[in-house]
Design a protein around this nucleic acid. Sequence first.
DNA 1: CATGAATGAGAATTCATTCAT
DNA 2: GATGAATGAATTCTCATTCAT
Lengths: 204, 204, 204, 204
Amino acid sequence: MAGGTKRLPRAVREQQMLDAAVKVFSENGYREASMDSIAAEAEISKPMLYLYYGSKDELFSACIERESTRFIEAMSVGFDPSLRQRDQARTVVKEFLRFVDEHRQSWKVLYRVAVGTQTFSHFVSDSRKRVTEMVTELIRAGTTVEGARDIDFELTAVALVGAGEAVADRITEGDVDLETATDLLVGITWRGLKGVGTADVVGD
Amino acid sequence: MAGGTKRLPRAVREQQMLDAAVKVFSENGYREASMDSIAAEAEISKPMLYLYYGSKDELFSACIERESTRFIEAMSVGFDPSLRQRDQARTVVKEFLRFVDEHRQSWKVLYRVAVGTQTFSHFVSDSRKRVTEMVTELIRAGTTVEGARDIDFELTAVALVGAGEAVADRITEGDVDLETATDLLVGITWRGLKGVGTADVVGD
Amino acid sequence: MAGGTKRLPRAVREQQMLDAAVKVFSENGYREASMDSIAAEAEISKPMLYLYYGSKDELFSACIERESTRFIEAMSVGFDPSLRQRDQARTVVKEFLRFVDEHRQSWKVLYRVAVGTQTFSHFVSDSRKRVTEMVTELIRAGTTVEGARDIDFELTAVALVGAGEAVADRITEGDVDLETATDLLVGITWRGLKGVGTADVVGD
Amino acid sequence: MAGGTKRLPRAVREQQMLDAAVKVFSENGYREASMDSIAAEAEISKPMLYLYYGSKDELFSACIERESTRFIEAMSVGFDPSLRQRDQARTVVKEFLRFVDEHRQSWKVLYRVAVGTQTFSHFVSDSRKRVTEMVTELIRAGTTVEGARDIDFELTAVALVGAGEAVADRITEGDVDLETATDLLVGITWRGLKGVGTADVVGD
DNA sequence: CATGAATGAGAATTCATTCAT
DNA sequence: GATGAATGAATTCTCATTCAT
């Protein structure tokens, strides 16, 4: 029972494999990660990998699915309709950064590995598009400025999402205080909200 | 018989090959791009690639070098010390976005492909770090807010750079007006400048 | 469909591969032997070769190791300290020639192929040096002639070893009686012993 | 006229190329020597090599031919029918070793490189066979021992030739006095003559 | 259920050899 | 006559994938 070929229930095995796969994929990239190394990391045989997941593509797909589900679930914690808009934004941003901080591999495999593949990049861009749309609506709702066009809202959202991803990357790299990063991102976002459509009027 | 097997002077062939390589690398990623397909794209034989560039690594390296030189040169056009700080920022951002718009492959190969490799990612991160440092200094210089810490400046810069990259990506994807995107980015940057260190005090 | 794609235990396959490799290497030389042809000879696929031996170099290395072990073991049969010096010499020479006769490929791969490589020639020269040193000592011990210098002993040994190798080659080529060849070699050796240092005095 | 593309008479060019080829072949072996490196060594272009020699095989062939001619010519210096048999043997052996000493590349390319090829090894074995036959006749002529069979003479010659080659190798490797080596080889040869057919009767 | 054994297909790289100028 | 430019044909090596046990 200690170190042999344990016979584990399917669900446990599956997670074990995905854990290994996410680790190896996130550290090496899709192409560089070999099924051999994943099997080794999971301490099972390659045929098991194929039995459970069919192919490298499908295994990667399963990784993406699990990680993005986790991601979304983590985010949903932040949604509290009773909060004022700004507090809600802050909570979401904080949950986002906390997730990245606590699940660096998830972040990497989703936003830095999948994004670089031909087959799965659409997954990330889709998800990114959804987030951007949400942010777009947030901005639109929080802005009263006249003369703002759709594209202004959308691009602002794109920029803010990009800012968030960059800060997220910075968090995976070293010791950045979550609170500080959150304040910063929310600050920019908030100020971003106010400026839409007036970019070159506001200012000095 | 089809495309013309001419004898071209070395310099010309070199550019031809790099053109093909940048195209294929930018569309497929480093690993996914085969020397075969690059040779086919350049309408030459594989040995030529090796004769001129030695290895896939070196070919990719040459791509990166050429594209980043082009990039830097394009940027330098924007520097005009006689301009006010804000106008200068606007010019640089505009040149940046113009470059991305006109050289989508350069942008992709540098910021979306090289970044995903083990061997060349440092190239991008180094370059990104330099830009971020510049932006950090810019922000520091343009801010009078009390109580801002180093990390505040740095993270703000990181966020702004991230925003810029996201907008750049958006530009490669579809028809976004450069002027609009520039205004937006400059607007956020400018407002960003003012908010450092006061993130959660400023506001409604 | 033709030769039987059986699943063999590792140890068996290893020998099968080495058999094929030794055959192909000994017949074609190191560079001329392709992994393809070795795989074909072994009736397995190329990846097996790499799975078991990692690289062409290592495969060749394994050949050398196995064959030289066999060689040394065969030689050690001949050592019988209870025999008089000359009888011992005779036994060793006989075992040597018998080995060459019965393992022509071993002889070729060791002394005619490995010797021609940049990477493995040292292996043969080292082994040859050891044998030569042994013979040198043998000669020194068996000689009472005055005035012999170290270089005389050493060169004599070199010559005798060379004679042995030449006779060995002759044996691999055609039907030479082992007994005859042994007598001859021992005869020369024995007379060699007596002549050291007196080369141009002895004689007619 | 100092460093450019001199237009040299054919004969000079040919020698220049062969010099380079012999050097590169002798240092690297047949397969390891590339036409590129030979052309570089000869300071001419590859097409010239092909113009003059047609193919790598033919170039190597030309090397062998030139070197073996030189070898034979050097040997023939030693033949002086007016000398006593033994003095003649001594002269030949000396010339042989002197040649090897002064033309190490010739020796290597002939006896250590060509011998390792499939295509040219026969050249060496043929030449070796001729020398061996000569030595066989020498021995036969110089021996009065009863009961010696053809195979005894032949094998003795084979052994002596092998001894000679081994000593030659030793000479290419380091500082061995030619006189010493000659004495030694002649000594063994001479004593070899006396022992033919009586190998196991002679002795202690 | 589990896996050691095996491979087809393709990728990078090298080299002898040949044109077009 | 001489060469820079170019390539066809191998060769080594890797990897996702699949059976036989």
